[in-house]
Amino acid sequence: MRHSNFKMRTICLLAALSGVAVLSAQTPAKPRVQTSAAPEETTVYKPDGKKPVTVIGVPSNKGEGKQDVSGKADKRKKTVGLEGGRYLALKTNVLYDACALLNLAVEMQVSKKITVELPLTCSLWDLGSEHGVRTVALQPEARWWMGNEAGRGHFVGLHAHVAWFNVKWNDNRYQDVDRPLLGAGLSYGYKLPLSEHWGAEFTLGLGYANMKYNTYYNVDNGALLDTRVRHYWGVTRVGASLVYRF
C-alpha cells in the first residue's frame, strides 16, 4: 500500500515538473537592452532571432536626461530680462529739486498694465528772509500704461494729494490750520527709456485741492490777518523726473 502511494506521488511530481517546463518554454524571454549604445540610440534585441531594432532619442541613463532638462530651464531664464520682469523704479523730480523741494518716489507694478507711485516731497528750510516754502507732501498715484509693457511709453494716472505747508512770500506768510491740504486729480505722462536701467519721465496733472489756512504778516511773530478756505482748480502735478529701474 505504501509502495503504491509512493509511486502515485512520484508520478504526480513528474507531471508537475513537466508542466512547468512546458510553460517555461512557451513564455518569451525579456528583451535585452544594449546599454553601451550612444545616448541618442538604444538597440533592443528580440528573442526570436530577428534583426535588432534601434530606437532613436531614448537617453541611455537618467542623469543625462536631467541635464538636458536643466539646460532648457537655463535657456528660458536667459530669455527673461528686464522687459519681462516686474517693473520697480526709484525716481526724483528734478523740477522740484531745482526749487529746493527734495523729493523721492517709488513706483511698483501691481498688474500687467497698472503701477502705483508713492512720492514724498519735503522742504524744511527757507530760501531767504522774504521767501520760503516749508512743506511735507504726499501724492500717491495709480497709473495705467497704454503700451504692452508697464514702465514704458504713455500713461494716464489718478492721483490724490495731502500736504502740510508754511509758505512765506513777500509781505505775507501762509500756514495751514486745523487740517492739511487735500485733493485729487488726473494726469498724463510719458516715460522715455535712456538705457537698460535709466529713463526720463514727463507728467502733467490737473485737479482739485481744498485748503484752510491762516495769513500772517511776514515778520517774526507777525500778526494774524485772516483765515480762509480756498477751493482750487488747476495744475496739481507737474514733473520732469530722472528714473532708475531695478
Rank of each mutant, 00 (worst) to 15 (best):
A21F: 10
A21S: 12
V22Q: 13
V22L: 14
S24P: 02
Q26R: 05
Q26S: 09
Q26W: 02
T27P: 08
T27N: 08
T27I: 09
P28F: 09
A29V: 05
A29D: 00
K30E: 13
P31D: 07
R32C: 00
V33N: 04
Q34R: 13
Q34F: 10
Q34E: 05
Q34K: 05
T35V: 13
T35E: 03
S36D: 12
P39T: 08
E41A: 00
T42L: 11
T42E: 01
T43M: 00
T43S: 05
V44P: 04
Y45H: 11
Y45N: 12
Y45C: 09
K46N: 13
K46M: 15
D48A: 09
G49R: 04
K50E: 06
K51Y: 06
K51M: 11
V53L: 08
T54L: 02
G57M: 02
G57W: 02
V58D: 01
V58S: 00
P59Q: 07
K62P: 02
E64W: 04
K66V: 11
Q67W: 04
D68R: 05
V69N: 00
S70L: 09
G71A: 15
K72R: 05
K72M: 07
A73P: 00
D74I: 06
K75P: 04
R76I: 07
R76Q: 12
R76W: 03
K78P: 00
T79H: 14
T79M: 12
T79G: 14
V80E: 15
V80W: 06
L82E: 10
E83N: 05
E83D: 03
G84W: 03
G85H: 14
G85R: 15
G85F: 09
R86H: 10
R86P: 07
Y87V: 06
L88M: 06
L90C: 06
K91T: 12
K91M: 13
K91H: 11
K91W: 05
T92S: 14
N93I: 07
N93C: 10
V94G: 00
V94K: 01
Y96M: 15
A98Y: 11
A100T: 01
L101K: 05
L101Q: 01
N103S: 13
V106C: 07
E107K: 05
M108Q: 00
Q109C: 08
Q109V: 09
Q109S: 10
V110A: 08
V110H: 06
S111A: 04
K112N: 07
K112F: 03
K112T: 02
K113D: 12
K113E: 08
T115S: 10
V116M: 12
V116W: 05
L118Y: 06
P119I: 10
L120D: 00
T121A: 09
T121G: 06
C122W: 12
C122D: 06
S123D: 09
S123N: 15
S123Y: 05
L124G: 11
L127A: 01
G128M: 08
S129N: 02
S129W: 02
E130T: 14
H131G: 13
G132E: 04
V133P: 09
R134K: 15
T135Q: 13
V136M: 13
V136Q: 01
A137G: 01
A137Q: 13
L138I: 12
Q139A: 14
E141K: 03
A142L: 06
A142E: 01
W144R: 04
M146R: 10
M146G: 12
